[in-house]
Amino acid sequence: MLSKRIIPCLDVKDGRTVKGVNFVDLRDAGDPVELAWNYSQQGADELVFLDITATVERRKTMVELVKAVARQINIPFTIGGGINEIADADALLNAGADKISINSAAVRNPALIDELAKAFGVQFVIVAVDTRVLDGKNIVHLNGGRLPTEKETLDWILEAESRGAGEILLTSMDHDGTKGGFDNGLLKHVNDAVNIPVIASGGAGSVEHFVDVFHKTNVDAALAASVFHYGEILIPDLKTILKENNIEVRL
């Protein structure tokens, strides 16, 4: 059976992890490579790096990060943040990234999805969607949930799939940071509507939330950051409990 995937997400700026990381036995909690290696040893199935570097040197720092990760880590990883054109993606692919994640660049220029899928294959292209409820509708947001767009979330996801997205990373900004659980209603709605893998994001606070999201929505993967970084949930424990709940995982 195909396993459900557990994906820690690391925020990186100027080659260093930025969100609080409070991990046992780390020599350098700011070193994304050491942190990533630790997660791979714990049984993480995949990693996502979100690069929030805002300098003109960003592509160079991202490429260096990707190379360093690819040298050390034996599981797949995705890099996102500031990928605006084919040349960005090409540099990251050649540095060893398995997938790239695009968000606002795709909203501003949807044809970028087609171009990336054509150049590198659909399996290389994750479209990340930040969603928030506005007047009772799920609306795509930019800038970390601050800027609403005209697009309704499911419509945009279906468009992204038809343009060549190989996977959807769906973050509920209403749930993100609440530790109150994933947005299972929306996730089920979206997962039932598409034929590409969906990664659930936003709201993970307990092991039960992971059990719930897989049981209630059948998404392919669940992503979280702080509950893993602060050691509130240990991946081996999480996977053991998922298995006990008849959810297929890689142990």
Partner: peptide, 30 residues
């Protein structure tokens, strides 16, 4: 079933071959 087949799935060796030595049957590969 979604396509592409993406993620970790179990591999079952059907013959005895050194390529799968020390790899338990049913191990996950990406």
């Amino acid at each position: 079933f979604k396509v592409p087949h993406t993620g970790w799935n179990q591999v079952f060796a059907e013959k005895d071959n050194p390529l799968f030595r020390d790899i338990p049957n049913g191990s996950h590969f990406y």
